[in-house]
């Protein structure tokens, strides 16, 4: 299981455009993508904008993105970059 721990840099947090960009990319991935606020927290579906919004991640807070399977490392890198973009 691959993981990326990333601090959300956008001022609006993981909402609005950053959330939409994140979900649009996650939806293209063949495998499941999960997001949690921190290690051990509730895992939500990274392809669900409503679930991501309900996590209510603010600027400067850290999330863990996980995925498993072929190509997952590459997808995780891209998702981590989206979440970490100011």
């Amino acid at each position: 299981m691959g993981e990326r721990k990333v601090t959300v840099a956008a001022e609006v947090g993981l909402h609005a455009r950053p959330a939409a960009t994140f979900v649009q990319r996650a939806k293209k991935a063949p495998m499941d993508i999960t997001v949690t606020r921190s290690y051990g927290g509730e895992k939500v579906n990274g392809k669900s904008i409503l679930a991501i919004m309900a996590l209510d991640v603010r600027q400067g807070e850290t999330v863990v993105i996980s995925a498993e399977g072929e190509g997952s490392e590459e997808i995780l890198d891209e998702l981590a970059e989206i979440a970490g973009t100011p």
């Binding site: 609005a16 455009r17 959330a19 939409a20 979900v23 669900s48 904008i49 409503l50």
Partner: peptide, 16 residues
């Protein structure tokens, strides 16, 4: 545009 595109994603949200 940003607001409407986020809404479009909500309409097809897998959880929903």
């Amino acid at each position: 545009e940003e607001i409407l595109k986020a809404q479009a994603l909500m309409a097809e949200d897998p959880g929903l």
